[in-house]
Computed example of a mutant assay.
Amino acid sequence: MIPEKADQKANRKKRGSLGGRPVSHDATLYKDRNTVERSINKIKEWRGLATRYDKTPESYAAGLHLRGSILWLRSLPTP
C-alpha cells in the first residue's frame, strides 16, 4: 500500500525529519578528504589497479608506485 501525501508528511513529522538545523562540518577536514578522494580516483583510472589484475601484493604495490610517479611527473611544471 502506497501512503498518501498527508500520510507521508505526518510520518516524516513523527520521525523528526521535517526541517531542523543543517549538519555542521569541519571545512578543513572536508577539503583534505576531498583531496585524498580525488587522488584515489586518479590512481584508479589506471585499469590494472582498479580491477586488481596484478594478483601478488608486490606487483600491486609496484603498480601503485608507478602510477603515483606518473601522476607526480605530470604535475610538475614544464620548463
Rank of each mutant, 00 (worst) to 15 (best):
M1L: 01
I2F: 08
P3F: 10
E4I: 00
E4Y: 01
K5F: 02
D7W: 06
D7F: 04
Q8C: 13
A10C: 07
N11C: 13
N11G: 10
N11F: 15
N11L: 15
R12A: 08
R12T: 01
K13D: 11
K14V: 00
K14W: 07
R15E: 11
G16K: 07
G16C: 04
G16I: 05
S17Y: 12
L18E: 15
L18C: 12
L18F: 15
L18V: 11
L18W: 15
G20D: 02
G20M: 02
R21D: 08
S24M: 10
H25Q: 09
A27N: 02
A27I: 01
T28C: 01
Y30D: 14
Y30R: 15
K31D: 11
K31T: 12
D32Q: 10
D32E: 08
D32P: 00
D32H: 10
N34A: 07
N34P: 00
T35E: 05
T35H: 03
E37N: 13
S39W: 13
I40T: 00
I40A: 01
I40F: 01
N41Q: 08
K42P: 00
K42Y: 01
K42F: 01
K42H: 01
K44G: 04
E45C: 07
W46M: 09
W46K: 10
G48S: 08
G48I: 03
L49Q: 05
L49E: 06
R52V: 02
R52Q: 11
R52L: 07
T56L: 08
T56R: 07
T56Q: 06
P57K: 05
P57T: 03
E58G: 00
E58R: 05
S59Q: 14
S59W: 11
S59R: 12
Y60H: 10
A61V: 00
A61L: 03
G63H: 11
L64G: 00
H65V: 09
R67G: 02
G68V: 11
G68I: 12
S69W: 11
I70C: 05
I70G: 02
I70Y: 14
W72L: 09
W72R: 09
L73A: 14
L73W: 15
R74Y: 11
S75Y: 02
P77S: 07
T78G: 14
P79S: 07
P79D: 11
P79M: 06
